[in-house]
C-alpha cells in the first residue's frame, strides 16, 4: 500500500511505546462504544428503561431512521446500516492494524488510497441523498465497512504523533540540567 511518510524525529522506542499504548487504549475503549449499538435493541426488547438512554447516546452521530437500520432482537440497532458498517469496519481495521502498519515510523495511507476507499461511500451516499437511486442496507453496510476499515490507520498514528510531539515539547521546555 503506497503511503505518505512524514518525518519523525523521535526515537523508535518512544514511538513504538506510544503506538502500543494508543492501540491498547483504543482497543479496550472502542469495543464498549461498538457494543452499545447492539445493547440498545437488546435492552429495548427486554423493555428496559435504559434502552432509550443508550439510543440517545448515539443520536448525535446518526439519524437513527429505523427503515435504514438493521434489526436485532426485533428492534433497530442504535445506528443506521451505513454507520454500523463504519463502526464495525473500524474494529476490523483495529484488528489488522498491528500486521499492516510500518513499524518504528509514522506512516499514513496515501491520499490516493483514501480517495479509492472513500469513493464508494461518497458516491452511494450522494446518490441516495439526491434520490438517484436507493441502495439496500447491505450495500450501505459494505460501503461503510470499507471506509471504516481504513480509519484506524489514521487514528492510531495521528493520536500517537500528538502525544509524542507534546512529550517532546514538554521535554524541550524543561530547563537544562547543570
Amino acid at each position: 500500500m503506497p503511503e505518505n511518510v512524514l518525518e519523525k524525529e523521535d526515537t523508535p522506542s518512544i514511538w513504538e511505546r506510544t503506538v502500543l499504548r494508543t492501540y491498547l487504549v483504543t482497543s479496550l475503549v472502542y469495543p464498549l462504544w461498538l457494543a452499545g449499538i447492539w445493547l440498545a435493541p437488546y435492552l429495548k426488547s427486554h423493555s428496559s428503561r435504559w434502552a432509550s438512554l443508550v439510543y440517545a447516546l448515539y443520536a448525535p452521530v446518526c439519524h437513527q431512521v429505523a427503515g435504514r437500520s438493521f434489526f436485532c432482537f426485533g428492534q433497530p440497532l442504535a445506528v443506521c446500516a451505513r454507520c454500523s458498517g463504519i463502526y464495525v469496519g473500524f474494529l476490523l481495521g483495529l484488528g489488522v492494524f498491528p500486521w499492516l502498519r510500518k513499524k518504528g515510523r509514522l506512516s499514513l495511507p496515501s491520499a490516493r488510497v483514501f480517495l479509492l476507499v472513500s469513493a464508494p461511500i461518497v458516491l452511494d451516499t450522494a446518490a441516495n441523498f439526491l434520490k438517484v437511486w436507493s441502495t439496500p442496507s447491505v450495500i450501505r453496510l459494505v460501503t461503510g465497512l470499507l471506509w471504516g476499515a481504513i480509519l484506524p490507520f489514521y487514528f492510531i498514528p495521528g493520536v500517537t504523533d500528538l502525544f509524542v510531539t507534546r512529550r517532546k515539547n514538554r521535554l524541550k521546555s524543561l530547563p537544562a540540567s547543570p
Partner: peptide, 19 residues
C-alpha cells in the same frame, strides 16, 4: 466528546491528504 474524537480523525486524514 464524540465530535472531538471524530474531528481528530478528520484532522489527521486532512493532514495526511494535504501535507
Amino acid at each position: 466528546v464524540i465530535y472531538a474524537a471524530m474531528g481528530a480523525l478528520g484532522g489527521v486524514i486532512g493532514a495526511s491528504t494535504f501535507a
